[in-house]
């Protein structure tokens, strides 16, 4: 959409995260690169365990990255010392999947929302109260009535609103949303998605929206990136990518998404098998063990992300669509 301009807010280069499990190494994120432009929402989809959350957490430095670089407004995050990194991270915020456990059950709502202000000693007394009230109003929670309640007294949807209010207190540039609506019922999910869209406009946010639900991601994103087993398969404008997927995996993923319409023909092509273990990923293309189009080349050579026009990139030796005109 037109809101995005060409200013890069976040640039990720060859990001790698490897966890150690005893002797073994789990390559959760295996070298991914993408840019996030100011004002856009990039959706990150993929099946569970493909490394979406780990990517988000590595960007926030909740888990240490083991390779690659992260540029926030041009400053490289991983090479900074602890205090400098903490400072730079003020520009980024994250909201998590489980709305209830994201809030300390024994703290009051207004203290939770004021937490970043308190941590950074940005506001006190009446000023702090007015910022908090304003934020709570923005997310649709009446501060006069509910500000003094404990977090444990709220339902999932309301907890997620409070989390959103907290994340906005620092006026971040970048908001990382990790499966923020997955735990909610559809009717509540729609409320939160609309709220995020509104706040994004109001606060001029750039968003990385991580989710496994293709319909949700399509709805909120300008561009979408598809991940499989720690690698990016495909990235492109959401309408293009959903209409003309170039990577076989994206194609199957879309085919498996169930549309709430009995008359819509469902794709008969289902993807067999299950993703291999990240402890021991296949050589070459990581999708080749399930890909119906795999050849010897796919086993021998790892496909690199390459441009096929219209801002659409794909990592496949035999993409389903050729270059866009």
């Amino acid at each position: 959409m037109s809101e995005a301009n060409n200013k890069v807010v976040l640039s990720v280069k060859d990001l790698e995260v490897t966890f150690r499990k005893g002797r073994q190494r789990v390559s959760a994120v295996a070298g991914i690169s993408f840019d996030l432009y100011e004002g856009e929402t990039l959706g990150l989809v993929g099946e569970s365990g493909c490394g979406k959350s780990t990517t988000g957490r590595a960007l926030m430095q909740i888990v240490p990255s083991t390779g690659g670089q992260i540029f926030v407004d041009g400053d490289e995050l991983t090479s900074l010392n602890k205090d400098e990194a903490r400072n730079l991270r003020r520009k980024m915020q994250m909201i998590f999947q489980d709305p209830i456990s994201s809030l300390n059950p024994r703290r009051r709502v207004k203290d939770i929302v004021a937490e970043p202000l308190d941590c950074w000693k940005l506001a006190k007394g009446a000023e702090r109260d007015s910022i908090v009230s304003d934020l709570l109003n923005k997310v649709g929670i009446d501060p006069a009535v509910y500000g003094n309640r404990y977090a444990r007294q709220f339902s999932g949807g309301q907890c997620q609103r409070i989390s959103i209010a907290r994340s906005l207190a620092m006026r971040p540039r970048l908001l990382i949303c990790d499966e923020v609506v997955s735990a909610l019922d559809v009717s509540i999910q729609a409320q939160i998605l609309n709220l995020l869209e509104d706040l994004k406009k109001e606060y001029g946010l750039t968003m990385l929206f991580i989710a496994h639900d293709l319909a949700v991601v399509k709805n909120i994103s300008d561009r979408v990136a598809v991940m499989y087993l720690g690698k990016l398969c495909e990235i492109g404008p959401s309408d293009t990518l959903y209409a003309k997927p170039a990577h076989p995996y994206t194609e199957f993923l879309l085919g498996a998404a169930l549309e709430a319409d009995p008359e819509l023909e469902q794709s008969s092509a289902t993807l067999g098998g299950e993703p291999p273990s990240p402890l021991n990923p296949p050589s070459g293309c990581r999708f080749r063990t399930r890909c119906p189009f795999a050849t010897e080349k796919c086993a021998a050579e790892e496909p690199q992300l390459r441009d096929i026009g219209e801002g659409h990139q794909v990592a496949c030796h035999f993409p389903l669509v050729g270059a866009h005109q």
Binding site: R86, R89, M94, F96, S102, L103, E115, C119, R166, M170
Partner: peptide
């Protein structure tokens, strides 16, 4: 619990997390 991670993300330091 995620709220501990969330506090770190807000910029809270160790002592604050342990006490709050």
């Amino acid at each position: 619990k995620e709220y501990v991670t969330a506090a770190r993300v807000q910029g809270a330091r160790d002592r604050r997390i342990i006490f709050r």
